[in-house]
Simulated assay, not measured.
Amino acid sequence: MLDNLIEDRDFAKIMQKNIESLIILLFEKDQNFGILCKIEQITFEPALPSEISAEFRPMTLFFLAGYTFDTASIVGDKLVFEAGFGSDNFGSVVSVPLLSIMQIIVDETPLLINLSSYKKDSDKPAKKTDEGGVKNSMASFLSNPENSKFFKK
């Protein structure tokens, strides 16, 4: 049951809205924060050199403070900010889909934990009802003389 909920599109929409609302509040309060996110869903422009990107773990923490915080904004369904990476401070614009943010952290304390695991490409087609089964069920119901009391005359 829990899997059905956390993989649900509507649940994901609520989580995304909560993430967005909290980030906007942190911007308004001028509060630095960290995001723990799935690195596979993040884009870097320009792309990071392989020796830098190889250092990232599947779940990576970015801390938004100083220049990085000042450049941060929400664009569509992404958190976008500029950051420097590696010893040479290689500059890149980072785009993080809001649903790939698993935690929002202030002062080492998680303020928000995203449990959603919804994936857009995994939309399952709606189950089609078996019309034949409904018709057969109705035929069985009607064939029993005892059920005639349920019909209006």
Rank of each mutant, 00 (worst) to 15 (best):
R57Q: 14
T43H: 04
Y118Q: 03
D123C: 04
M138E: 11
S143I: 04
D10I: 13
L2Q: 00
V80D: 03
S92M: 08
F150R: 01
I52E: 09
K128M: 08
F27D: 00
L115N: 04
F141I: 14
N114H: 06
S73G: 08
F62H: 13
V75D: 07
P46R: 01
L2G: 00
I101T: 03
V96Q: 06
G76N: 02
A72E: 07
L98K: 02
A126L: 15
D70T: 01
S92R: 02
K153A: 14
S137L: 15
D121V: 10
F33N: 03
T129Y: 10
S137E: 13
E7F: 05
D123R: 07
A65W: 08
G84P: 01
L79F: 02
R9Y: 15
L22I: 08
E55Y: 08
D107K: 03
P97N: 10
L112H: 04
T71N: 10
E20S: 15
T43A: 05
K78I: 01
F44D: 06
N136C: 06
V93N: 06
L26M: 09
S92V: 05
G66Q: 11
V106S: 02
L2E: 03
N147L: 09
F62R: 11
V96C: 13
D77V: 05
F11T: 05
L142E: 13
D123H: 08
N114E: 08
T60H: 14
K38P: 00
D3P: 02
D30A: 08
F69G: 02
S116N: 03
Q41G: 15
L36N: 12
G84F: 02
L99N: 13
S117T: 10
A139V: 00
A12M: 05
M1W: 02
L48R: 02
N4D: 11
E82A: 04
Q103C: 07
L64Y: 04
T109N: 06
D121N: 10
L79N: 01
F141Y: 15
I39Y: 04
S137C: 12
K38W: 05
P110L: 03
S143C: 09
T68V: 13
L142T: 11
D8T: 02
I24V: 14
I24C: 09
K128S: 09
D88Y: 09
G76F: 00
Y67P: 05
S50F: 10
M1P: 05
D123Y: 08
M102E: 12
P58A: 05
T71D: 11
K120S: 11
A72G: 07
L98P: 07
N18T: 13
N32P: 07
G132S: 08
E45Q: 12
F81P: 00
E108K: 04
S95T: 12
N147P: 09
L115H: 08
M15K: 13
K135Q: 09
L48T: 05
K153R: 14
K135L: 13
M138H: 08
P58R: 04
G91R: 11
N18E: 15
I104K: 00
F33C: 08
L98A: 06
D70G: 06
E45Y: 07
M59H: 15
F81K: 00
D10H: 13
S137A: 13
Y118V: 04
K135E: 09
F44I: 03
E146Y: 10
I101S: 01
E7A: 07
S148M: 14
D77F: 00
Q31S: 11
V106G: 01
K128V: 07
F85T: 00
